[in-house]
């Protein structure tokens, strides 16, 4: 696996006015994006599978969150020390770890024990864990004061929207495969609503960031015409938003088949992943020195 940043690249970045963040997206950093994506999708899937009372969906949610845990371990420089991440008083990463630690055992036990009071309590506990998993990711980024593009209260809302949407999307892909009959029109409408919400949130977020400080504006520029632009336009906007919204709108003309809904789910998942990837990739640190200034008069 390539390094997140080679020594030469670190030196080159240090000399640049706008220093790009690489640690959370390049090299092993890609596993963090995968981990965040899977934990959001898994937690969202848990909520919708509970709502639909679909047991395979609950298993799928557990699998997604467990894989997310493995991806996080792959990302960490010292994964064997993961158990030390319990300082949840101030750290959102620790809160996410606590959420995962609550969710996984509670969800597994909830499926294993016979239906009853204990099972109900475990489901509630697992749902609390899932809620923490939905909330924590955006806050991890928002707590990064070195990267003004992320340091916004809008980002946690955007990431929570994407997590809920991811859960619904995974169910859209897997429900027909599981032979489960669904109200295609109803689910299609929910998906359309969530996709439009995500698009509005994304637009609002970028609009806010464009009018904040220099580094955040530069990050928006990286997103719309810089190094994150291909992932943003192709993955986040085209595949992740336009396709699901267009298909969702077509759903008003007539009922959508399960296969089409599965396509909507798959494209939404791709969009979810690339939204996280592009936002991470566009991160720029606070500049330490100005880019330039007026020429000074020569010494006498």
């Amino acid at each position: 696996m390539a390094l997140s940043a080679t020594p030469d690249r670190v030196l080159a970045d240090l000399g640049a006015t706008f220093r790009p963040q690489r640690q959370w997206v390049e090299g092993r950093g890609i596993w963090l994006i995968v981990g965040h994506f899977l934990s959001g999708v898994g937690a969202g899937t848990w909520l919708f599978a509970l709502w639909l009372d679909w047991r395979p969906g609950l298993v799928l949610a557990i699998a997604a969150v467990a894989l997310s845990g493995l991806a996080h371990l792959r990302f960490l420089g010292r994964g064997a020390r993961f158990w030390k991440m319990y300082r949840a008083r101030t750290s959102w990463i620790a809160r996410g770890f606590v959420g995962m630690s609550i969710f996984l055992p509670a969800a597994v036990l909830a499926l294993l024990v016979p239906p009853g009071a204990l099972s109900g309590a475990l489901v509630v506990l697992a749902t609390v864990g899932a809620a923490i998993l939905i909330v924590y990711k955006g806050n991890v980024y928002a707590a990064s004061r070195g990267v003004p593009f992320w340091n916004s209260p809008v980002l946690p809302i955007l990431y929570a929207t994407y997590a809920i949407r991811g859960g619904l999307a995974l169910l859209l892909v897997t429900l027909p495969l599981g032979g489960r009959g669904i109200d295609a029109h109803g689910v299609g409408l929910i998906e359309l609503w969530v996709a439009v919400s995500a698009a509005v949130m994304l637009g609002f977020y970028l609009g806010v960031m464009r009018s904040t400080n220099l580094a955040a504006r530069r990050s928006v520029a990286e997103l719309v015409r810089g190094r994150a632009a291909p992932a943003f336009y192709l993955g986040t906007v085209a595949v992740g938003l336009l396709v699901p919204i267009l298909i969702g709108v077509l759903g008003f003309a007539g009922p959508l088949s399960h296969a089409v809904l599965a396509v909507v789910g798959a494209t939404s998942l791709v969009g979810d992943f690339f939204a996280k990837y592009a936002i991470a990739k566009a991160g720029i640190y606070v500049p330490l020195m100005p880019a330039g200034r007026e020429p000074v008069a020569p010494a006498a």
Binding site: Q23, W24, F75, L76, G77, G79, V140, A143, R145, G146
Partner: peptide, 10 residues
């Protein structure tokens, strides 16, 4: 240190 690099971003 677990090498999560959150401090670098902060």
């Amino acid at each position: 240190c677990v090498g999560c690099r959150a401090c670098m971003q902060a």
